[in-house]
Design a protein around this nucleic acid. Structure first.
Lengths: 340, 340
DNA sequence: TTGAAAGCGATACCAA
DNA sequence: TTGGTATCGCTTTCAA
């Protein structure tokens, strides 16, 4: 063992010298097939083996003018929601030979700077929900960097993929109405998420169609504690609802805790529904809505790849794409249905 | 608008020309403070503004000889476990000014190649559990690339961080023994995860200490379906246990389903415990063990950063570090304790 | 089929 | 304090 301090990186030059060829030939041998004799290719391979050469990705990328990497930006990874999206994204991206850089923006003051930094390291990026403000999104897209938006209000000229909120929420409303629930309250903040806004809008539509009064809406964050706190206050009020439709499952679970604490039975005294169908929903009989989160990530990775590769063959600007993935009402006990 | 086809990247050269200085000065103005007049700095800044210049990260990294990026490798992101680890890792890494590349190896044939590719794109990487085989780990570490192992059997010469399995599992065993459970079976595969192996070992130790017989061990994967299937078979057998200790919460939830299907009450007829304390555990009264997953990621990011930065000042090779983070038994109903 | 050499876009050393 | 220029490691014409 020599000095461990500097593991002396092996470059293409050494390989070339070792194989008795030029660096150009080494480069070719390592990628093209046609332009190199099988004999020389073998010599190069041998040298590569012997020297344990591994091409420097930076040099390569710089020369090729591409990163061969994609980014994905999300608020955080709390709860299974975003994690699933990221997983679907990663799977497809790496199938397509691209590395994946992640960035969580929640709770950091320099989110914008971080996203701009990310933009310098990738050939395209997906942005989930409200991870970054609109103007940053448009700024980045204006750079020419391919961007795809997920679970977020579309921005002009940018590809967007969402999951169905309105229609399924309306369906949920009809279902609750059929159960005889009349005084329905929505728990969640429509101003902080376009998904939540869509769910509330759908709920409104559905209730109206059922001839029921407008639902009240109580703002709260998307976690158990927030849902519990909001529900405690709500249930202590004079005009207690007979059903709460929650923006997601965590909130619903929190609402349930509040109901228990208030001595109310679910669903007899208070129906509760969620959204996302997390594991806990299944095991607590929570009626909810399932969405194809993995697909959301997968599709976005695929779209991004198209954008990235198409942009080399510059033709007419391909118009922005939109897609809404289907969601499905999952009926369990908490809405008033008999235990299955 | 001109041709949108080639957004013509703005380089440091244009900025230099625009500001009437050399590229060296531009570079300085954008980083050092001392070596540039405030006046010239202003001119450079103006040019940067006007041209909307953004430095190319590849050029920069190549020149600096570093990626300013870290990798993290995990089997998958299913369940909250790895997601939390990744989140903790990302948070610290980006605080330290490093980007984060992720790689999921589960269910891909070319896992090794993918990890090696990742190794070319980062200054260091964390590897979780059995995401990649030992020999690959040592190969990468031999490269000189800083590596830290998480929730995994230590490898000679490599930093490793784990969470406490044995001791807490023994504690759990004692708790179950105190409940009067005597015939205890373990559900999980100790051969596929050092965490699982540690939990089983701890269970053994604890039961022995309590004067109870050796636990049976039934192998199964770490998801609900696997747990359910394994438990169905187990409970159908002639020598039914009175408690099953599961390798994680998902398995425990599956076991519970099996118990219900078999007409057994939990915990009266069968006690069930899990590991991880996922959300569903809390809401189903599952006795389990909580681990600091976020910390696991955070600490590893910090260690990695040390390794990466220390290696410039080459001195004596710092010996590999080891750390075991504490875990905590969370007692709920499923072990036999009264509902709290 | 192969080699020489010109980039790719920054950093940083050496002079001035 | 500034400019000129070598350098990082690779890809890719252009000739031979």
């Amino acid at each position: 063992m020599k000095a461990l301090s500097k593991p002396k990186p092996v470059t293409i030059y050494e390989v070339a010298r070792h194989a008795g060829v030029s660096i150009a030939t080494v480069s070719r041998a390592l990628r093209d097939s046609t332009l190199v004799t099988e004999a020389t290719r073998a010599r190069v391979r041998a040298a590569v083996e012997e020297l344990n050469f591994t091409p420097n990705q930076l040099g390569r990328s710089l020369a090729e003018g591409r990163h061969a990497a994609n980014g994905i930006v999300f608020p955080d990874l709390v709860g299974p929601y975003y994690a699933e999206v990221v997983l679907g994204y990663e799977e497809v991206a790496s199938e397509l030979g691209r590395s994946v850089l992640i960035l969580a923006t929640s709770g950091r003051r320099d989110a914008t700077a971080a996203v701009l930094d990310l933009a310098r390291r990738v050939d395209g990026m997906a942005i989930i929900a409200n991870a970054v403000p609109d103007d940053v999104v448009t700024d980045i897209a204006a750079t020419g960097l391919p961007v795809v938006l997920l679970a977020r209000q579309p921005v002009r000229g940018i590809d967007t993929i969402r999951t169905r909120n309105d229609r399924t929420a309306a369906e949920l409303a009809a279902h609750l109405a059929a159960h005889g629930h009349r005084r329905i309250t929505f728990l969640g903040d429509p101003d902080r998420s376009s998904d939540v806004a869509g769910r509330l809008a759908g709920l409104r539509t559905g209730l109206r169609a059922a001839g029921l009064p407008e639902p009240a809406a109580v703002r709260c964050a998307l976690d158990v504690a927030a849902g519990e706190a909001a529900a405690i206050e709500l249930l202590a009020g004079s005009d207690r609802p007979d059903a709460v439709v929650c923006a997601n499952d965590e909130v619903a679970l929190g609402a349930r805790l509040a109901a228990e604490a208030a001595g109310l039975r679910v669903p007899e005294d208070l129906a509760v529904t969620g959204w996302d169908d997390v594991l806990a929903a299944r095991f607590t009989g929570l009626t909810t809505v399932r969405q194809p989160m993995r697909d959301l990530g997968a599709v976005s990775a695929r779209w991004l790849h198209h954008r990235i590769t198409e942009r080399t063959t510059d033709g007419t600007p391909v118009p922005a794409r939109r897609r809404v993935l289907p969601t499905r009402l999952v009926v369990r006990r908490s809405c008033g249905c008999p235990a299955s």
